[in-house]
Design a protein around this nucleic acid. Structure first.
Length: 709
DNA sequence: TTTTGAAGTCTCTCC
DNA sequence: GACTTCAAAA
């Protein structure tokens, strides 16, 4: 059973097939110059970049000039006369797309600006807005992010009568995870349960019921989740009823290039096949050793099966690493050599010299932090800009202590990945108002904003929504809804606010930033009453307002923030800040595709990296290992892996426990590092503690003994 | 019956 | 430190 919306058979033809307009990302016009493929590329890179038409698989190890090769391929295509707007460049993150388009522009000039680039989801969104209505999809849908989708799943769960305290029935997050996996991997629900949640197998029928309700609910409320974006794209291409539309979408592009192919899933592979039904000009680049998105359904089979799926595909392998020094490669190669399955080979470099990476044992978290900060300042004084250094970790919250220290010492930093401010409750609250205006059927947002009102809780909110649904979501139905007496004032206030906002819309006095100002006349008070520390939250809303200012319409704004969320605080529209020399803090995932002169990988502790949740499952441990490999291979000249020895365990009472070094740094890997054990700070006066202290005999012995057991 | 405050329970990666 | 669950108050 599948849960996607079937495409209605009727659709209207018409509207020209001119390419979708993409906003130009770079303003200045770069001069056009002849590209020198011979001088700029090595043989393998050149072979890939100048490959003629037809399917091409580039297997590229870390740092082998993958981006460079793709950019030169784009340049080559343009020189060959392919129209730039007929080239589609699919990447995994928005950052990667921007970087690649920027580099292409430097190479071939402003012409390359017409190249279409973006993430799978972003591109899906544009195509669906453009062609979806013709295929019977709603034109005014709003996009659910993961949190919204989970909330909607909760409503479905309740509608199926599974919300009561039956403790054993899975949480909304689990339900959504299974659903998303089903869509992205096409595994049957039962198989997913058997593999990942054996304890829930008995509920398979209930899962199916909830999913059916969830799917129907999304459709009747004009809601589209991330998975739907891909699903609808695939269906536009594949469904017989949409054949003519699929043909036109397929005819939009002559060449398709895909970055990070190892992180695509079967649904994305189907999309690529569909996009290539007129031509077979598909170039994919990937590295199986860097596959780190299995949790999203990515499968390495896409790379392995590529030559079979696209018969006669050329395969080019890039092995020469231009990024890292040999000692860093030695450590990385050793680490990944432990992987259960490997398909690619050892990386090598012609770069000479370079010191062994450091393996730093700190006494505790605060010493780890001090070491990292001291070392960063040292390198900075020696001439490395802050922006050329990064601290990487497994999960967003692990940098908390470091962030405090950096702030205290006035070192500017920028954080990538982890919790984004758009996911913060108070920001989502304000967005809920906007989304209800945009799509009055947005049940998730109604539910959220109603419960903000004093006196209105779960039950009253649900009743109000029922009243709305009964009247086909006519906005007036809410005004006529009779709330319980205690919520009378709040109801009145909300009705007035929504009316005022709609009126402003009609009178052209809108603008999404103005909307937010109006919403905040009500919401700021609610916020103050709800939270003790209101200042940072109010500041977040100021930032939201500033971002909104850059968008003309509410529709654009809402779509943009679901698909291209500002990833860091400096992305948030305070322009000049992003030019500053700032240190990068990033999750290992968000660091993929980037490189720095100096990289610090902190919390290399078993249970942290790899995370404890992965420990039960061999495949997950392998994915964690590849993730560590990704982290290590980000470094050009300096690499330090740190682990605190004593870890404060807030979970089990207030005491310290001894931590184990990450299992990925086994004895053989340790030999590729130089070990540094930081002295306990109590023993030495601070002035005498060098940032890289001499190892003490005791701790070294302790360290060794752990590897011998 | 519904809301709200307080204690208790986890904590990921991303579009 | 944020979200869920439980018990008391309106």
């Amino acid at each position: 059973m599948r849960y996607g919306a079937p495409l209605p058979s009727g659709y209207i033809q018409g509207v020209s097939d001119e390419p979708i307009a993409y906003p130009a990302r770079v303003r200045e016009v770069a001069p056009r110059r002849a590209v020198d493929f011979d001088a700029d590329l090595n043989e393998a890179q050149r072979k890939a970049a100048t490959h003629p038409d037809g399917p091409l698989l580039i297997v590229a190890g870390a740092g082998t000039g993958k981006t460079r090769t793709l950019v030169y391929r784009v340049a080559h295509l343009i020189e060959r006369g392919v129209r730039p707007e007929r080239i589609l460049l699919l990447t995994f993150t928005r950052r990667a797309a921007q970087e690649m388009l920027g580099r292409a522009e430097k190479l071939v000039g402003s012409e390359s600006r017409a190249v279409h680039g973006g993430t799978f989801h972003g591109t899906a969104h544009r195509l669906i807005r453009r062609f979806g209505v013709e295929a019977g999809l709603p034109g005014d849908f709003t996009i659910l992010d993961q949190g919204d989708a989970e909330d909607l799943m909760q409503l479905s769960r309740a509608a199926c009568g599974l919300a009561d305290k039956t403790k054993r029935f899975p949480k909304k997050e689990t339900l959504h995870h299974v659903y998303s996996r089903h869509v992205n991997t096409e595994f049957p629900v039962g198989a997913i349960l058997r593999e990942e949640y054996p304890r829930f197998i008995e509920f398979e029928d209930d899962f199916t019921r909830v999913f059916a309700d969830y799917t129907a609910r999304k459709q009747s409320r004009n809601l589209v989740d991330y998975d739907d974006l891909l699903l609808y794209w695939a269906m536009l291409l594949e469904t017989e009823a949409a054949r003519a539309i699929g043909d036109r979408i397929g005819a939009l592009y002559d060449h398709i290039l895909v970055d990070e192919f190892q992180d695509t899933n079967v649904l994305q592979a189907r999309i690529l096949k569909g996009m290539c039904r007129v031509h077979r000009n598909l170039t994919v680049v990937g590295d199986d050793a860097q596959s780190i998105y299995a949790f999203r359904g990515a499968t390495i089979r896409n790379i392995l099966d590529f030559p079979r799926d696209f018969h006669g595909a050329a395969v080019v392998t890039l092995e020469q690493n231009y990024r890292s020094t040999q000692p860093i490669l030695d450590a990385s190669n050793m680490l990944i050599s432990r992987a259960e399955e490997r398909f690619t080979k050892e990386l090598y470099t012609t770069r000479t010299g370079g010191e062994k990476p450091w393996l730093v044992t700190a006494q505790d978290e605060s010493q780890q932090t001090r070491f990292v900060v001291d070392r960063i300042l040292e390198l900075h004084e020696a001439g490395t800009p802050l922006r050329e250094m990064a601290v990487l970790f497994r999960a967003g919250y692990m940098s908390a202590d470091l962030e405090i220290e950096l702030t205290a010492r006035n070192i500017p930093f920028e954080k990538w990945g982890g919790l984004k401010f758009l996911e913060a409750a108070h920001v989502k609250d304000v967005l809920a108002f906007l989304r209800v205006l945009e799509n009055p059927r947005d049940e998730v947002s109604w539910y959220r904003l109603l419960q903000l009102m004093p006196g209105i809780g779960e039950t009253t909110a649900r009743r109000a929504i029922e009243a709305l649904a009964d009247r086909d979501w006519n906005p007036e139905a809410f005004a006529e809804f009779v709330p319980p007496p205690r919520a009378k004032d709040a109801h009145r206030g909300l009705v007035d606010l929504l009316r005022a906002l709609r009126r402003a819309d009609l009178e052209g006095d809108g603008g999404v930033a103005k909307d937010i100002v109006r919403i905040r006349t009500m919401y700021d008070d609610i916020l103050r009453a709800r939270y003790d520390r209101e200042e940072p939250r109010l500041a977040d809303l100021d930032r939201l307002q500033a971002i909104a200012d850059g968008y003309g319409s509410r529709t654009d704004f809402l779509a943009a923030i679901s698909l291209d969320p500002p990833a860091s605080s400096t992305d948030l529209g305070f322009g000049s800040e992003s030019e500053d020399d700032v240190l990068i803090l990033s999750t290992a995932h968000s660091a993929k595709g980037k490189e720095w002169d100096a990289v610090f990988v902190i919390w290399a502790v078993d249970g942290w990296f790899p995370m404890s949740r992965a420990l039960g499952d061999d495949d997950q441990i392998e994915e964690e290992r590849r993730l560590m490999y990704v982290a290590l291979t980000r470094a050009r000249d300096h690499l330090a892996v740190t682990h605190p020895f004593n870890v404060y365990q807030s979970r089990r009472g207030a005491d310290y426990s001894l931590s184990q070094l990450s299992r990925f740094i086994d004895r053989g890997v340790v030999r590729t590092f130089q070990q540094v054990v930081l002295e306990s700070t109590e023993r030495l006066p601070e002035a005498e503690t060098p940032s890289a202290a001499t190892p003490t005999v005791d701790l070294r012995a302790l360290l060794r003994s752990r590897f011998s057991s």
